[in-house]
Design a protein around this nucleic acid. Structure first.
Lengths: 203, 203
DNA sequence: ACATTAAATGAACAATGTTCAATTGTTCTA
DNA sequence: TAGAACAATTGAACATTGTTCATTTAATGT
């Protein structure tokens, strides 16, 4: 078959990434193959390579989509009234999202580009967006408006949360006594916030 | 060639895992193939499958070795006099180890067993040992001797640290402004400790 | 109607994980 | 010492992978 008018290039991109998400969510990252994606969208392998540079590129676009979805999921969560309440809500939303998309979210931190190339800027921007929500929730603790410092604290805290969350994907049960990653993450958040608070009091 | 008396089974295991470490440290996890390991130790592919169930199994043994090495590297670091000093030293040792073994340590959190099988007990014990060092350093904050609580706090904190450390492996430069993962991790540790401390004071 | 263009194809290649019958050193027995 | 029994080692073979690209064919322009 030659050129078809079934779908625009944009449609195809969407279909392929949709398929990739479905595959990863059901069979894990190892189930994601070029031929499988092609079959799912009713096109041939070659078409996948028309749309993406290679499988890593497809993977990256899928992760970008996940980051977008996560941002949409949490962006309106913090209300800005009480820091502790906001973070409880953020914590809830984050783990709810993880429950809905365990495998895809799990791939976010995977080291993909073994070729050594740095991640492209457009992707780094997508990474920044969910962090910005955490920054917003933290601003009451940094009233001087020191943007760099808030970013720093937000990323530190949430990378930690994410690290804990990811760990559980491999070790579903009782990896740490009877405690779930969700509880641990809340503990990290609350202790971190307390630490920030006591730091502020000392000034 | 049939049976040779060049190396015992134990020798072969060691040689194979040594080779795997070398390969991963130089070419990343994607460079780790059965044939490559075989070539490095001067045996054929089949022999690799005599030693290990499959590549995942070889991978797991390599990760276990890394965990062993990490434990040896940090086990005597905390002196038990001052919590903050101990944690600074632990932080230093951990990142020093990361500098020496970036790629292998990077694989520790990788989700390998896509087959869904839980990790074997002997491996979970290896995971526990480095954590026990953190627990030891934390004990002054838990004078009631509540072992479960110390474990909980130690694992929470260090999973967070590890999450931050891993993130940087993908994003060597200025992922977060000008701040390195090493600084961020120290910030997480110190803020967490402050939070623990203020929590204690409120009792 | 024909030429031009570009999307879609799928055969082809090298490399992968994994298996297993065949091979060949080592060891045991008589 | 001969040869049988054993077990470690091999590598050809298979299915599957990522990736390429000459060929095909539908859509578009003239």
């Amino acid at each position: 078959m030659g050129r078809r008018s079934d779908h625009s290039r944009g449609d195809l991109l969407k279909m392929a990434i949709d398929a990739a998400e479905r595959i990863v969510e059901s069979d894990g990252i190892k189930g994601l193959t070029a031929r499988r994606v092609a079959k799912e969208i009713g096109y041939s392998v070659g078409t996948i390579y028309n749309l993406f540079d290679n499988l890593d590129d497809l993977n990256l676009h899928m992760k970008a989509r996940t980051l977008d979805a996560m941002y949409e999921f949490v962006k309106d969560v913090p209300k800005g009234n009480d820091v502790n309440e906001d973070f409880k809500a953020l914590h809830n939303a984050y783990f709810e999202f993880l429950r809905l998309n365990p495998k895809t979210l799990g791939t976010i931190l995977d080291r993909v580009s073994a070729d050594g190339k740095p991640l492209p800027d457009w992707y780094l921007e997508k990474v920044a967006k969910p962090f910005s929500v955490v920054e917003f929730a933290l601003t009451p603790y940094f009233p001087e408006g020191n943007k760099t410092e808030v970013e720093y604290a937000a990323r530190t805290l949430w990378c930690g949360v994410h690290g804990i969350a990811i760990l559980e994907l491999d070790n579903p049960v009782d990896f740490i006594g009877q405690t779930s990653a969700e509880e641990m993450a809340l503990y990290l958040i609350q202790t971190f916030l307390k630490g920030l608070h006591s730091h502020k009091s000392q000034k």
